[in-house]
Amino acid sequence: MPGDKDIIISEGVKKWFGDFQALKGVDLRVKEGEVVVIIGPSGSGKSTFIRCINRLEVHQEGRIVVDDVELTNDLRNIEKIRSDVGMVFQQFNLFPHLTVMQNITLAPIWVRKHTRADAEATAMALLERVGIPEQAEKFPGQLSGGQQQRVAIARSLAMEPRIMLFDEPTSALDPEMIKEVLDVMKELAQSGMTMLVVTHEMGFAKEVADRVLFFDYGAIVEAGTPEHFFTSPEHDRTKLFLSQIL
């Protein structure tokens, strides 16, 4: 259950790509342990927003505070936040030249300065948790999409993050593999992880989310609990979007 502390604070965040304004003032407070699902049409700025939270994109106006640290150009703040915020990408982005084990242990060894033995023990435990301990010595190219995405989740968890960001984690997967990834994410949500999930999986949103946000044209149009959101949306654009995808 969500705690009392606001672990992510976003106030009036604006971002432009050239002349195109991708974010038009996003205000959001996420409590520790909360699971927030962000939905919206493509190009609505939802991915851009969560990429701003670990500064893969740089916002130009407004402020973002993650775990009491404000995101500025100060390199040390950014490195601290990145190692505390895990991110899972649509295209997995595993390192193809490293084995699954090496993918997972790389950052714990070189960023967290864990010993190799400790890092490998943690990695094995995480692979058990995502259900593929037998794949540890394979290369990513030898795994299915679903397995790769689960390795990517394990890789992020190995840094013991306080927040996990998911950027359309199931969009590049074949239908029969989506469930295995969603199951891992559900288990993670139940364990009390703070999660921000951009997704088109409405079933996941209904079942797991504490809060659902609807993004359109670079701003949050509507926010609420899943019950409110899927049964009695207030805004016309939300209704239209839901009618198109449900």
Binding site: N54, L56, E79, K80, R82, S83, V85, G86, M87, F89, Q91, N93, L94, F95, L106, A107, W110, V111, A152, R155, S156, M159
Partner: peptide, 14 residues
């Protein structure tokens, strides 16, 4: 691919 740099950054690698 750009994703490789992003993944590395997101894990806090320098």
């Amino acid at each position: 691919p750009k994703g490789q740099y992003e993944a590395a950054k997101a894990m806090g690698l320098s």
